[in-house]
Design a protein around this nucleic acid. Sequence first.
DNA 1: TTTAATTTGATCAAAATTAATCATAATTGA
DNA 2: TCAATTATGATTAATTTTGATCAAATTAAA
Lengths: 249, 249
Amino acid sequence: MNFQKRKQKIMEQLDRTGEVDIKELAAELDISEITARRDLNQLANDGLLYRTHGGAMKVDPLAKPHDFVNKAAQNANVKDSICRRAVEHINDGDIIFMDCGSTVFRLCQFIKHKKIKVITNSLPVIYELQNCSVSINIIGGEFNNERQATHGKIANEHIARYRAGKAFLGVDGISAHGLFANSELEAEITLMYIHQSAYTYVLCDDSKVGKETYLKFADINQVEAIITNADDQKLAGFKDTALTILQVV
Amino acid sequence: MNFQKRKQKIMEQLDRTGEVDIKELAAELDISEITARRDLNQLANDGLLYRTHGGAMKVDPLAKPHDFVNKAAQNANVKDSICRRAVEHINDGDIIFMDCGSTVFRLCQFIKHKKIKVITNSLPVIYELQNCSVSINIIGGEFNNERQATHGKIANEHIARYRAGKAFLGVDGISAHGLFANSELEAEITLMYIHQSAYTYVLCDDSKVGKETYLKFADINQVEAIITNADDQKLAGFKDTALTILQVV
DNA sequence: TTTAATTTGATCAAAATTAATCATAATTGA
DNA sequence: TCAATTATGATTAATTTTGATCAAATTAAA
């Protein structure tokens, strides 16, 4: 068993239990204690763990990987049917905005083979659209780990530099009174996308329709269309607005 | 059994078990140990595997963009020792630029647990530094799939908005006459990083030192330090410059 | 505080792996 | 065909890795 392999095992156990003991380690890996000690010293030297007397501890117990994909997988069927409707409105040559919503993310799989330009602040979208015919423009700025996207002043300014024909955006709530968000950062960047695109599609499942939550950041007449699985009853409130409603089963 | 066929078998087993042993390999393929060793060295040189004592291991299968990972795996030992020296100059609270060089990429593993702010145009760097104590700022702009990074006018403007204490950059060539790049896009963004940082470290292995290739984009006195494994003879040309030379074994 | 137990780093030695050198076999291209 | 290049193998020296011993440092206990 070479160092690389031992390193792997040590980091594995460290990840699992948070600590390792030199004696145990030497026994488990069938190496002498001094070799175990040397291994730990080397890893500590690279900042991969904290050396303690008789063992080592994990460096950053706080890091919590946020699983974006899980959120995107919720209600996958509903989201996919919304996206199938959305993709009917996307043609080769289009320049489109995509934000960091989990429904918008699922749009990626349907546009991979289109010859379009996508401008986005969502890292998962960027990843999904790599190595395909879509050309990508990344919105820069401070990266928010929870949302897996960039936000803030610089990101907004960056969007302001571009114009796109269409924007595909998610919201936390929508009603005849306007669009709602759970955070200011999210609200601002969505608003900027709306400003800089000729035609805005709001993608949202029925749970968001009629919901007026936290912060209203735009009037309903600022966007052109909504694509949703909400039923007629939920959508009735929009009948006095100019909003184009694209309803999916 | 020729090299191509052996290479196939080696990569096959590597894919299956994650590792190979020189003795076993020699026995299985019915070749001498030294030939097995030469095979592994050649494959390691192409970044297709990591060489270990007595065998080899698979390169990180999780990282998506294969070309980039392979490039980063080439000369991994040299790059890592360069990075270990670099990390000595990075302290908690620092704000640093990192470009999209393959050596610079390997710096990530050594700074994951530092409390610093990283501004970068490299997608692999972003991906590597997610979910750790490093806060990330993404340089926006058009995404170049080959380089796995953003470049161009908007990216340059974006960098111009920021100031950082230190920049860690790669180059395609460096001599007493200046810094050299293989493309204008690369040159421009590197130059912008240099302008916007108080202190610039150039990270490069010995193959880049003394090389004057394609496009000169900066004088040598525009950067402060070079971290390299080049020997005294190769570095002799810099003795009349103010460049700080950080030499690694 | 002092004492005992444990852990550690340094030094050296043994084992394993590797690089270097040279010789031989196989392949290639004229 | 033959010379030249390339691939392979054997040998040996150098390097790396590992382990053992022991004094010094650290921790825990009295």
